[in-house]
Amino acid sequence: MRAVLHLTLGLFLLLASLGTASAHALEPGYLDLRQLTPESWQVFWRKPDVNGAPMAIDAALPETCTPATGGEAKSDGYAWITAWVANCPDGIGGGEVRIPGLQLQRTDVLLRLQPLDMQATTVRLTPNAPAYAVPETLSGGAVFLSYLGLGFEHILEGWDHLLFVFALLVLIRDPWRLVGAITAFTLAHSITLALAALGHISVPGPPVEACIALSIVFLAVEILKHEDGAARLSERAPWIVSFSFGLLHGLGFAGALIEIGLPQGDIPIALLAFNVGVELGQLAFVAGVMACFVLLRAAWPGLVRAFRKAHSTGISVLGYSIGGVATFWLAERIAGF
């Protein structure tokens, strides 16, 4: 039993240490190249803010373009902006667009190419691939994969969303009810994600983030109030709870997507890809938790037996740990108003 307590308290300390960090670490740069004439391109370059200064990255067009890089960036209060018109007499097809310094960062850059006579396309540059070789013929086929990857990474970097899903796994004992709860959560956040990203609803970010933390506190309380033989509403019909709170979490996802931006002309496919990426990340997390339990049971059967013998105590420790982290986030976010 002591091992269970140590393991759970270790989880609490790990999550609490992450509490001071943003729940959504995804703050990509954005480079938009819009062709004005056969030889000129309008360049819009937005790089993230790091402690009041621009991130140490830059945007470089093919060497045949003049100028290939922009001037001094100016802050808009959220990020650092540079805009210029580049003359590219040979075009940019066959050239390379680079983000110097990206290989040293922990973020991505979305590159949007909008030629005059071809379909626009969006690609994702990463620290492992900070350059893009522009093909002679551009297409929009990369949009889906780019936003799919962004959605997948966002859910895995959103500790509050993952803790909510983990709390559902702890609270709901019946497999089919668990499937129903996760399905309802998926449906709900898909609705608000689409509505908010398309501008049909607008809710300030800080209250949404505080309510997301409050939703985890609620699940922790439900875990602690569980009694064998007397299932609460959250256990009998968990899809009601997960759907309701899923609407809030969808607004949180939308906040990150709005910061990234949706490519004009490819909004439906980008929105679908981002949402699919979120779902794949969520499923990967659930599968990872289940795999960890299987491996733990195989490698340390004594711990599992001890947990089963003191099931109610172990669940209580998990409930208090989840609730403690969520309460810390709630207080931090309310203080940030």
Score class of each variant (00 low, 15 high):
A299E: 06
E222A: 07
S242I: 01
G151P: 13
A120P: 10
G180Y: 02
G265W: 06
I334G: 03
T82L: 11
A299W: 09
A291C: 10
G52H: 02
M118K: 06
G95V: 01
G140Y: 02
L102C: 12
R98Q: 07
L61A: 00
F185S: 04
L169S: 08
G199D: 11
V203K: 00
T327G: 11
S75A: 14
H6I: 12
L251N: 14
R297K: 13
W84G: 00
L162W: 11
G324A: 03
Q282S: 08
L156M: 08
L214I: 09
I260G: 12
R177M: 05
H189Q: 08
E27F: 00
I223L: 05
L138W: 02
T107M: 08
V325Q: 01
F164T: 11
P100S: 03
A131S: 08
L251F: 06
E72L: 13
W159G: 06
Y132A: 00
K225A: 00
F12Q: 05
A298Q: 10
I191F: 11
A25P: 02
F12S: 03
L163A: 02
R232W: 07
H249T: 06
S242L: 02
K74W: 12
W300L: 11
V170M: 06
A291T: 13
L11R: 04
E96G: 01
K225F: 03
L156C: 05
L31R: 08
L283P: 04
L104F: 13
P263V: 11
L113K: 06
I260M: 12
A197L: 15
V289H: 11
V241N: 08
M290K: 02
G261R: 13
D58A: 07
E209M: 13
P175S: 10
L193W: 05
L171M: 09
F293S: 14
C211K: 11
Y147P: 07
V317R: 00
A213P: 14
A331W: 15
D49G: 03
L296N: 11
Y320V: 05
P89D: 07
G323C: 06
G319E: 01
A3V: 12
T20Y: 04
G158E: 12
A83L: 12
D76L: 13
G149I: 00
A306N: 14
G101P: 02
P100W: 02
D174Q: 08
E259A: 10
K74Q: 15
E63V: 01
A298W: 15
I260H: 14
A188W: 15
E332L: 06
T69L: 03
F152K: 05
E332S: 00
A131M: 00
I99E: 03
G77N: 15
L125A: 06
E279L: 04
W80Q: 05
H249Y: 15
V217Y: 13
Q114M: 10
G94R: 15
L145Y: 00
R112K: 12
G180C: 08
L195I: 05
A21W: 10
G91Y: 09
F328N: 04
L110Q: 09
H311S: 08
W84L: 10
G70L: 12
D228Q: 09
L61V: 03
V43G: 01
G29I: 03
A306G: 10
L5F: 10
S234I: 03
G255E: 15
